[in-house]
Amino acid sequence: MAARFPNLRWWHIPAGLLGTAFVIFWILVLSGQKTWFSEQPPLQIIPDMDDQFRVDPQEASRFFSDRRSFRTPPEGTVPRSGRAYPFGPGDLALAEKAFPQPPFPESPYVLAFGQNRYDAFCSPCHGPDGKGNGPVVQRGFVPPPDLTRPEARAYSDARIFHVISAGQNVMPSYATKLTEAERWAIVFYVRQLQRQSALQQQAASLSTVPARQ
């Protein structure tokens, strides 16, 4: 060894290994195989028209002093589509008069949609079966009442629609997140859950009746 490479010193070997590792590291980074996490905003080498002087949704405004780009519309503005829910949490009687029945009939497709919306928006608190034991309740939220109990089965469709739209005590309102059609689909699905739980209770009470001798 030493005879063939007379200039080789002991530290050349670790230095060479380190150098190779350094080069491989950079090749991996530059080819995108290795992600380099950084808190610095991405480097813009030629920022031609990347950031134009306009307001993107949810961007901070460079014009108004409170930096809100989403301005409060003036009094009496009419929305182009959809409508704001007109009633507060206490206006149940008005809501029942305004929405005597759902705007579209129940169908398997609407139920599938209602199930999807319920699982996303209600099950964190009410649980997937409506019994009020969702994951957030297990972490300390106020336990909501069972949606499938007999009193709730007697609620009108409009009442459930009203609770979703306006909220009730600590339950927040979902009028801004769910469209009217989505809320009605959820009402249909809650009805379905109530029917299922009624059937289960019936089956349970039947099985406790002693069998005929």
Partner: peptide
């Protein structure tokens, strides 16, 4: 290679 988005943008945290 370093000017590609996969190097400059990926991993922004």
């Amino acid at each position: 290679f370093g000017m590609h988005n996969r190097v400059t943008d990926v991993g922004y945290r």
